[in-house]
């Protein structure tokens, strides 16, 4: 089987960038997911949403940069960018699931909760 991954020769001064970029991919990734979800839930003001998308852009850039640094071939880089587009939907799907499951399993009227009803 022909190998897709090419093993690059990395020089000592290339490693720091790789480790930093790998970290940033995940940090921005969780930042994006958290900001979008939290602002949709109302824990964070709505105006923070653009920052969430900004995090996504930074994440996509970091992943692209990481792919370049480890000398991924063009095909892999394209696949990674498609994956980033899919990830764009993740927090929205996440929020949709939270909301729908609440409606279905834990319907709450304004001002009172199932629990306080139970305890009363």
């Amino acid at each position: 089987m022909e190998s897709v991954i090419h093993m690059p020769q990395l020089a000592p001064d290339e490693f720091l960038g790789i480790f930093v970029m790998a970290t940033l991919v995940l940090v921005f990734g969780v930042g994006y997911a958290a900001l979008i979800t939290l602002s949709k839930m109302g824990f964070v003001p709505k105006k923070w949403q653009p920052f969430g998308y900004f995090f996504w852009i930074l994440q996509a850039y970091s992943l692209y940069d990481l792919a370049q640094r480890v000398q991924s071939n063009p095909f892999t880089t394209k696949v990674l960018m498609v994956a980033m587009v899919i990830y764009l939907f993740a927090p929205h799907l996440y929020f949709y699931l939270i909301e729908e499951s609440e409606n279905r399993y834990d319907p709450v009227e304004d001002g009172q909760t199932t629990k306080s009803l139970k305890e009363a």
């Binding site: 699931l97 729908e100 499951s101 409606n103 279905r104 399993y105």
Partner: peptide, 11 residues
């Protein structure tokens, strides 16, 4: 319990 919003995603 209302069944109207019983989407497959929450099943």
């Amino acid at each position: 319990m209302s069944k109207k919003s019983a989407s497959v995603w929450t099943s």
